[in-house]
Structure formats: C-alpha cells, structure tokens
Computed example of a mutant assay.
Amino acid sequence: MNQLFSGNAIDVMKKKFGQNFDVNEEVAKSSLYFANVDEHVDFPRPISHKVVYMGGTGKVKAKPLEKKFEDIMQKSKKGVILVSFGSVALSINMPQEVKQVFLETFKKFPDITFLWKYEKDEHKIAEGYENVVTDKWVPQNDLLEHPKLLGFVSHGGMNSVQEGASKGVPMVMIPLFADQHRNSKMLEYRNMAVVLNRKELTVEKLTEALKKIIEDDSYRKNAKRISALIAAKPMSAEERIVKYTEFAAKFGPDLNLDMEGRHLNFVQFYCLDIILPAILLAAVVNYY
C-alpha cells in the first residue's frame, strides 16, 4: 500500500497522528476505500468489496466558450486538437528540442488548428506557424466537449484523463512521472488513446500518433462508448460517496468486508510453506 502515498505524505500523517501511525494498518482497518478513478476506465481486476469507485467527482458541466476560443474552433478548417500538460508540468519548461518536435509535427497538419496551453506569450513560440495558437490558460473542460475538437494531447494527469474519458475524446498521452504512466496505459487499454514515451519523442512518432486518433475512427468510437457508459451509470460519483459514507457511519468499520488475506504473514501469503517443500522434494528426487 505504500506506493499510494509519497514519503512526504506519510511524514505529514505521522506528525499529525504520531510516529507510531501505520498508514497500511489504518487503510486496512477502514470501512471503505474510495478510489479516484472510474471503473469503466480503470483496468478490470479482482478487488475487495471495500473499494468504491468515485472517479469524476465534482465534474463541471461544460459552459459556452468565450468568444476568442469559439472563434478559434469555428475558424479551423478541419477541427482543433488541444495540447495541454496541466498546471504542474508547464510547456514553457520543455527542452527546446521537444518544443520543436511539437511545432514541426503540427506543421504537417495545415487543416487542423492546434490550441497549445503555453504559459508565456512573450516567447512567441508559435510565430511563423499559422495553424498553432497558444494561450496561457485554456478552458479545458469546455473545449473537450466542443464538437469541433478532434483530440487531446495530454501528460496523463488524473483530472485530464477523467475529463477526456467523460467527454469521449481520443487522446495522445505523453506521461511524465508518477501515476501518469498508469493513467495513460488505462486509456491505451481501452483503445481510446495512443501512448508515447517522452524520452523517445520524434516528429515521426508524434505524427503517426496524431494520424491514428484523427483518421482511425475506432479511437473516437471507443472514446464515445466509454463516455456513454460513464454518463449512464446508475449512481453519480457524488451519490456514491454520500450513500456509502452514510452506510459506513451507520454500521461502523465492521461491514463484513474485511479480507482474511490481510492477516496472513509473509510465508502464508506467498504460499512459501507449500512451494518450498515441493521445490526441495523435486531437487532431492533429481539429485538421486
């Protein structure tokens, strides 16, 4: 369970609750575990009944675009591709050669407008590239729902993944660190995204990835299907949180959901008491 928490997060918890605070034990004893991901996006796998998916909490309904962004969408000949790497990994901090890979790739699609969240206008990064528009801030949630949006180039942050999936937008994922790699692979598994390695990014690879999500209609169809599944769920994320929290508050930690496996020691959990004697017996037989 440690991989769910950074070292800093664990230090903060220990300062607040004491040095003997064991985050693994506290999570194991909890009534329920809320997972910030949608089950129709996440990898299917056997999980404890304690896990409650609540991805998409606080999803904001898209608003009409302000004039400057609506004009960008309408003036584009074929459509628009949004390029944004979130609020932590800023585009201005990209190595110059990576910026050039993006620009030279965008140039290969003259009928498509690339709206790039780039944080310093004074860099004039898109000067000379007629189909590239930059802005310090973009209304991502609203843009993703626009009918002329063709795709989304993203770093794979969970908010971007949830918004892109809920809006049914095919994506090109270039994960940078932490959970972004897994988040990106989830969408690749659902066949609604192409994942690229940031360390191996070239004009050729980025061009091929963009052509896939634009020209291969299966990516858009899969993305729209995921979006429809999310929208049609019997309960919204907010309803799940409220109802399951009230349920846990009523009955306490003992909801008959505790798994016996968490009480097994290392030898029992990995069946070493069964495997090692079998290996030893096979070794003795072969030796004689």
Rank of each mutant, 00 (worst) to 15 (best):
K14A: 06
L82E: 00
K148E: 06
D38Y: 05
K233I: 04
K77R: 13
L82F: 11
A193Y: 06
P64H: 06
I274W: 14
F269E: 09
S218F: 10
K185M: 09
L187E: 06
F269V: 00
S30Y: 04
T134N: 05
D273Y: 11
F102Y: 14
T207H: 09
A35Q: 05
Y270M: 14
F69I: 08
K75V: 02
H155Y: 08
A126Y: 01
V284G: 01
M192Q: 08
A278N: 12
A237G: 02
G157K: 03
V60R: 13
N8T: 10
N159R: 10
L82C: 07
E122F: 01
N2Q: 13
E97A: 07
V203N: 07
V161A: 05
P110M: 05
I72T: 11
P234R: 04
S227W: 05
L115V: 09
F43Y: 15
G86E: 02
P110L: 03
R220S: 08
P139L: 06
G7Q: 12
E246R: 10
D254W: 02
R240W: 03
I230M: 12
L210I: 13
M73T: 02
I241N: 07
V138R: 02
L32A: 10
F152I: 10
E70P: 01
Q3Y: 13
M192K: 04
I81T: 04
F17A: 12
F5A: 05
S30N: 07
M158G: 03
E39T: 11
L229V: 03
N131Y: 04
K29D: 12
H123Q: 09
K167T: 02
L201Y: 04
N20G: 14
R198G: 04
Y287K: 15
M1G: 13
A28G: 11
H155F: 08
P170K: 03
E204D: 13
K50G: 08
R262K: 15
N8F: 10
F43M: 11
M171C: 04
G7T: 12
A249P: 00
D135I: 00
V52F: 07
Q96W: 10
S236E: 06
K136I: 02
T57V: 13
V242Y: 09
V98Q: 14
K59T: 07
Q268A: 11
L4F: 14
Y287E: 11
K167G: 00
K205P: 01
Y288S: 12
L196M: 02
A178D: 09
L149K: 01
I174F: 01
C271K: 14
Q74F: 00
Y118E: 05
K221C: 01
Q3T: 13
V98H: 10
Y244R: 11
E130N: 15
E97T: 09
V172G: 02
F152V: 04
D42H: 11
K108W: 06
G252R: 04
L206N: 02
T134W: 01
V242W: 02
P147Y: 04
I213Y: 03
Y244W: 15
D216N: 14
T105V: 00
M1Y: 14
R182H: 08
P277N: 09
Y189N: 12
K77W: 05
F34W: 04
E127F: 10
G261N: 11
P175W: 06
I92D: 07
K59D: 02
